[in-house]
Amino acid sequence: MGADPGRALIASPSNGSSSPATAALAPTVDVLVDHVEKSFVANGGKVVTALDKVSTTILRGEFVALIGPSGCGKSTLLRLIAGLDEPTEGMVRVRSESPKTFCARGELGIVFQDPALLPWRSVRHNVALPLEVLGRPVKPAAAHIQSLIEMVGLKGFEDALPGQLSGGMRQRVAIARALVTNPSLILLDEPFGALDQILRRTMNLELQRIWLRELTTTLLVTHAIEEAVFLADRVIVMQANPGRIVEEVIIPFPRPRDESLFSDPKFHQRCDRLASLLHGGEEH
């Protein structure tokens, strides 16, 4: 994974950036979004365009953040990539397959803002749910499930029910569940949106630690600029009415990024630039 050309090109401009040698290697495209349009019929019969001719790609091993105001269609785009909805026009491909085919092989992990745990299942059995849905044996995976629970810091809570856990702990269970199939693409839909600022930072650091182990291609939808800049290799900025991509910004900070980055002036420069893009390109 470390020799992945796509990652070398996009994520780490600091170590030699776009030398002709690396640029010549064609990066592998994991997610292709091609002229995607999505419209809904609202209650009054009016057609609302949630996404208007959106095109982008996500490369293998890339961590991409998608930010934008509410109603810009960022969650809709994520649902299209997850195969949970179908585009009205255009095409979504994940590793050259339709999202549904890709998902049915257990190649996708997903985390929502709401942990969406089944309240009657213990932590262990919630993490095992994807395996059961895929019809895979759970028993041989017991050690793997245990290691995931320990990785997200929930050792000792294997048999606890979701109702006995705090909000942050439940979200950790959801992350472990998303990783249980060793996915090749992870989608995160405002995963820490319901957590307070302090817990959010802790979870951001942990997410980076988990991500650095496998360098799995990841798409994070968020409305927190700091979170996007801290975690992502590239930030895609969207605007509403109609939902569209207005800018893509490369975040060049080297990894692993630690907490000191949050107070780095360069970090704030990036954040301010994104904020001005979000506010419709006004000067800040």
Binding site: A82, G83, L84, K100, C103, A104, R105, G106, L108, I110, F112, D114, A116, L117, L118, L129, P130, V133, L134, R177, T181
Partner: peptide, 18 residues
């Protein structure tokens, strides 16, 4: 039901019976 919980099942290819 929690609509997100059924989304989780669908992401792994689960149909309505699942």
């Amino acid at each position: 039901i929690d609509p997100r919980a059924s989304d989780v099942v669908r992401v792994y290819g689960g149909d309505s019976l699942c």
